[in-house]
Simulated scan of single mutants.
Amino acid sequence: MSDFNSSDFTNPSTFILLGIPGLEAAHVWISIPFCAMYVIAMLGNFAIMFIVKTEPSLHEPMYYFLCMLAITDLVLCTCTVPKMLSIFWFNFREIGFSACLTQMFFLHSFFTMESGIFMAMAFDRYVAICDPLRHSTTLRIPVLAKIALVVVLRGSLVTLPCPLLASKWPYCRTNIIPQTCCEHMAVVNLACADTRINSYYGLIVANLVISLDVIFIAVSYVQILRAIFSLPTKDARLKTFGTCGSHLFAILVFYIPAIFSVITYRAGHKVPLHFHVLFANVCLLAPPMLNPIIFGVRTKQIRNRLFQVFSQRGITVFSLFSSFQKEASGELASDMAPGRLP
């Protein structure tokens, strides 16, 4: 009988996501800020895409890349947060084996795509500042489409071996994952086999991809800063650097927590597990929530268009309310007329 159970468990049909181990009693309270961050991320990124689509003056490469970033952020947080909230609120901890591997693929591939988009945005800023006369001819729509395709293919192809390898291992230890999502190494660590190939591949790819992207971004901004400091006046330097401010801030928000999370996960063995899981979830949700705020506040065109939309909505609501008041006053006056008295 035990052999039968062991052979069944070698290919589990479901995994169990614990949520945040050690903080199960506080899951409901922890879910409140996470749910708020998710709602803000959804509303903010949809607002960015709506504004760029409806405003012809924003049909430029930088804003197309911003829409790509918004789509990536939406997928990145949507593939994990609904399941996380179902664990916190309803204790729905089970996730199918195939669904777990699918979540793993989307989580890591779109994280890689977001890094690629930041690199593409750095290239856009480099061309716009260092070679402005060729910006409109260099970054045309076909070129933007090819860049987007390369970003998507790179993120998908470098991530695809992770779930494929994970699907081949036998799982005979346990099917309990001490996480809120199917992170690659959290799943592979459950396998009762030599999974060093997964560990080495994930580590090499993560370091290689992020390192190359960070190096490319750094080189781009070295050239950008050289071009900025060569401008004749201080006002011109500040104005030109202001066009890069939101991009730089978003880069810091994305890379610094991610690098810190990887370091603590690999080297911080004395750090409690619940801190690892909690911080990893914050790192996952913070960029999608903050990116629309960063670009919305610091980008004048988006900020003006956003104020315009809200002012129009406010005028419409005020007009409807005023017309409703006038109609109500008219009906009241007619009811109080002498001929209408009971």
Score class of each variant (00 low, 15 high):
Pro178Leu: 07
Tyr221Asn: 14
Ser57Tyr: 13
Ala250Phe: 05
Trp29Cys: 07
Ser329Asn: 15
His184Lys: 02
Met62Gln: 13
Gly22Asp: 08
Thr138Gly: 09
Val151Ile: 02
Pro33Tyr: 10
Pro12His: 05
Val277Tyr: 10
Ala148Trp: 01
Phe260Val: 12
Ile197Gln: 04
Cys181Lys: 13
Ser115Ala: 05
Glu60Ser: 13
Arg266Cys: 07
Ala206Ser: 11
Ile259Arg: 11
Glu60Val: 15
Cys162Lys: 06
Leu139Val: 05
Phe229Trp: 06
Ala148Gln: 08
Leu208Arg: 06
Lys168Tyr: 01
Leu17Thr: 10
Pro288Ile: 14
Ala258Tyr: 08
Val253Gln: 11
His269Ser: 11
Phe249Asp: 00
Tyr64Gln: 08
Cys67Glu: 03
Asp194Gly: 03
Met113Lys: 03
Phe324Asp: 14
Phe65Thr: 08
His276Asp: 03
Ala186Lys: 01
Lys53Asn: 00
Leu23His: 10
Gly314Met: 10
Ile210His: 07
Ser319Gln: 15
Ala186Met: 12
Val52Ser: 02
Val219Met: 12
Val317Cys: 09
Gln325Lys: 15
Asp235Tyr: 09
Tyr201Ser: 06
Ile51Ala: 01
Cys181Met: 15
Pro161Glu: 01
Ser2Phe: 04
Gly339His: 02
Leu332Gln: 15
Met289Tyr: 03
Lys300Trp: 06
Val52Leu: 03
Glu94Arg: 05
Val297Cys: 08
Ser136Pro: 04
Val151Ala: 02
Val81His: 14
Phe90Cys: 11
Cys130Ser: 13
Ser57Gly: 06
Val205Ala: 09
Leu157Lys: 01
Leu208Val: 14
Arg154Ile: 05
Leu248Asp: 08
Ile215Glu: 02
Thr78Ala: 11
Val271Ala: 10
Ser323Gln: 14
Phe50Pro: 00
Ala206Cys: 03
Ala191Glu: 02
Leu18Phe: 01
Cys283Phe: 02
Val271Phe: 05
Trp169Pro: 01
Met68Leu: 07
Phe106Leu: 15
Ala218Val: 12
Thr159Asp: 00
Asn45His: 02
Trp29Val: 10
Phe307Gln: 05
Leu43Met: 09
Ala280Glu: 01
Cys283Gly: 03
Val253Gly: 01
Val282Arg: 08
Ala227Lys: 15
Val282Asn: 10
Val214Trp: 10
Arg196Trp: 02
Leu149Ala: 14
Ser136Cys: 04
Ile259Asp: 03
Cys192Arg: 06
Val143Lys: 14
Ser211Ala: 10
Ala193Gln: 13
Asn281Pro: 12
Ser334Lys: 15
Leu165Asp: 02
Phe324Met: 15
Ile32Arg: 06
Val75Cys: 13
Phe97Asn: 13
Thr240Pro: 08
Phe275Asn: 13
Ile315Glu: 08
Thr102Trp: 12
His59Thr: 13
Ile71Gly: 00
Asp8Lys: 04
Phe65Asp: 11
Cys162Gly: 00
Thr72Glu: 04
Ser86Gln: 12
Ser109Arg: 04
